[in-house]
């Protein structure tokens, strides 16, 4: 029934580990896009312009309500129809970055809105300007809870990179598919891919939790 072949495992492991590097590269690149773009989305919703707030709000909702896989296809295939060719990597990073920017913008907003109203009032009472209030009072308090959310989405983006295989980004899943098709063996490549994901995401999630607790303690937010 179950015949795991060790020699085959050793044969394909280097290739998979190399592909894991690509997976991390894709996750890191996509995350960089998401962190910056998410901040733009979040700040755009805090401006006084109601129209801008409404448009960005709806855009964020739209991105969050539709499958990433579909967004990847859309960005990759629609460009050429209008004469804009994107490489799989570029399309993939844009799609995944845009998708997670929508989520991160909510994390940023939540962090800011979670700071108690009394903090704004106390800042007003000692006459701090709006900029100083954000810089010295609000953001330092918004950051620790937001960092937990940001960390979770870093792990999330990492776990969503296999979807990039569908447009030919040579990350883990794509490589495992190729190995499977070449050798007609799926047990080892898919299982190893699963184990690699576990081996990276579990410790990362744990580290993020530790980091958040340590940060909160360092800032005196908990005993």
């Amino acid at each position: 029934m179950l015949d795991w072949k060790m020699d085959f495992t050793w044969e394909i492991l280097p290739r998979l580990l190399l592909a894991a590097g690509n997976t991390m590269l894709a996750a890191g690149g996509g995350y960089a896009v998401a962190v910056v773009l998410g901040l733009v989305f979040a700040l755009a919703q805090r401006t006084r312009s109601r129209t801008l707030t409404f448009i960005v709000r709806e855009l964020v909702e739209f991105i969050r309500s539709t499958p990433l896989l579909l967004q990847i296809f859309f960005i990759f295939y629609v460009g050429p129809q209008f004469g804009l060719r994107l490489s799989p990597w570029a399309a993939g990073l844009i799609a995944i970055g845009l998708h997670y920017a929508a989520y991160l913008s909510e994390v940023y907003r939540g962090g800011i809105e979670n700071v108690p109203k009394g903090q704004w009032e106390a800042a007003r009472a000692i006459n701090l300007s709006t900029v100083t209030t954000y810089r010295r009072i609000i953001i330092p308090q918004a950051l620790p809870p937001a960092l937990a959310g940001m960390g979770n989405y870093l792990v999330g983006i990492f776990k969503d990179t296999p979807m990039l295989s569908v447009i030919g980004v040579a990350e883990l899943m794509h490589t495992a598919n190729s190995i499977g098709a070449e050798n007609f063996r799926y047990l080892e490549p898919y299982t190893i891919v699963g184990l690699i994901f576990l081996a990276i995401s579990l410790p990362t999630a744990w580290l993020i939790r530790r980091f958040e607790t340590a940060l909160r303690r360092k800032m005196g937010l908990t005993r």
Binding site: A122, I126, L128, R136, Q141, G220
Partner: peptide, 25 residues
């Protein structure tokens, strides 16, 4: 002004709370 729920800045020490306004404002 002093508030019912104090509204101290939790990420600053007692001293930090008291020098924030004088330094920044």
């Amino acid at each position: 002004m002093c508030f019912q729920h104090f509204n101290l800045f939790p990420h600053m020490t007692a001293l930090g709370n008291c020098i924030e306004g004088p330094m920044q404002v």
